[in-house]
Design a protein around this nucleic acid. Sequence first.
RNA 1: UGGGGCGUCGGCAAGUGGUAAGCCAGCGGUUUUUGGUUCCGCCAUUCGUAGGUUCGAAUCCUACCGCCCCAACCA
Length: 567
Amino acid sequence: MSTEIKPPADEGPSNFIRERIQQDVAQGRRDGRVFTRFPPEPNGYLHIGHAKSICLNFGMAAEFGGRCHLRFDDTNPVTEDVEFVEAIQEDIRWLGFDWGDHKYFASDYFQQLYDYAEALIRAGKAFVDSLTPEEIKAYRGNFYKKGTASPYRERSVEENLDLFRRMRAGEFEEGEHVLRAKIDVEHGNINMRDPPIYRIKKAHHHRTGDAWCVYPMYDYAHCISDALERITHSLCTLEFEDHRPLYDWILAQLDVPGDPEQIEFAKLNLSFTVIGKRKLKQLVELGLVSGWDDPRMPTLAGMRRRGYTPESIRALCERVGVSKRNGMVDVSLLEHAVREHLNATSPRVMGVLQPLKLTLTNWPAGQVEWLDAPYFADDPARGTRPVPLGRELLIEREDFKEQAVKGWFRLSPGAEVRLRHVGIVRCDEVVKDEAGEVIELRCSLDMASRPGQPGAARKVKGTIHWVSAAHALPVEARLYDRLFNVEEPNEAPEGKTFLDNLNPNSLTVVADARVEPSLAGAPTGTRVQFERLAYFCVDRDSTEDRLVVNRTIGMRDSWAKLEAKGG
RNA sequence: UGGGGCGUCGGCAAGUGGUAAGCCAGCGGUUUUUGGUUCCGCCAUUCGUAGGUUCGAAUCCUACCGCCCCAACCA
């Protein structure tokens, strides 16, 4: 039996966290166990930043044969809600991760946490402070000034215990007392200057109801929860780095079952987007987006509705890597991952956003032929769908130019172009209305160039998409663009905020687009490529007689690039 | 005036004393019945700066510079 365990090849680049875990396992630390946890606070929806943490935590656990707990960090009842605990679970599952039986809530530990607090008091390591919040702040000092001890710091164990029990019994009002760890008021690290660990909150908790009126604070609850669950590696973001001494201090005072270690990594920042619950919440509450799942939101719910795939989000997280450098990842990396997966998985279909009538003058009126068009031209074995062809078609207005410019491969008077799956067509006549606007193109189809015909291999520069006017389905196409029009929306000039960086054109609704009939009845979430245009995803707003599709992301467009260059 | 971090290509990011991976972006070309995809090239003589140690440094030492986080009874 070989003892050599080769890690899977698809691990992604090495990073300092994996290395440390590898080392711990190799040295047999904590029996070689690797238990991680993803600890969301149920006060908002999960976003792309959380995805990085989810991938890391669940990924490391899976890689080392351990497990990853889902633990709701619900220690602040005034901001949390069940709506969020449901949504969070749905999003994690959608992303592709499974916590198995290991779903926990910090609130599950309220009694134990309380008991540990009494133990801390008995050990003389915590005291009840009766200063007002303002006074506590003043006594704490700041970066320049060391703190000074609270006058209540030397209360006796008996008095502290009595006061704390009465706090728990509801005898005091919010703000009257607080339980503080007794550490070092002069510590250079402000987190160590006798941090509050319990406060009175007479609020209804979404799980424990009114059973408690004292709630533990993050620094106190998190490390103990980790220890109780015997978490080995507690991965969190950089801003908690200077909380680590407190994390370690608390556990060192207590007789807890586990021995977790906190390791910090840089959170994900994406250009042209704002990540952070507070800001996202603001967008939702101000009605600047339609909700947490607005397809422009960087929330998992929004990205799902937009048509992004979990695979692409995971690929992004893997490519971004894990380090301690606070940086900004280019959205193009995400867009690349999305296109990459969608290209491999989305059936091709034809749809027209801005229709222009095209009449096949040599096609008999009333004659309809159902073409057998492959969903994937590169691999017809993956299936086909019937596409109706008649005399009157609709093409993309953008595919016709009255004055062809150099490099123009599409339609123009007298020019030839291939109609996808049909054959080569020549534009013989341009019909205009009184206003001079082009309203119809009259073209002749070269029958010999149809698929299977001897002339099918004839080359023309361009191929365009189309739909049969008589059969096309009306669809509402929602064209989404970046929510912000600057790389770093948080950087706003004096007096402005990130809201001033919103892109006013982040949503364009095309109410009367057309698609081929094969899309009829497509269920919500169906992803397709409208050939040559973009990837679309069927939205839940669709009704029986009207599809609504969201543009997930456009195709790369080298013509647009060329055109832009030419001025 | 305190504490904690971080500085490798335009953006991420490997590298752990032996002579700068990879990905995205960009550029050029190939293939193509999607101006998509594919494929192939090009893209850091240099690792924040300056010294030093060494046969040899992005990696070690020293100093300096720059950036980020911390002063909620939030997480």
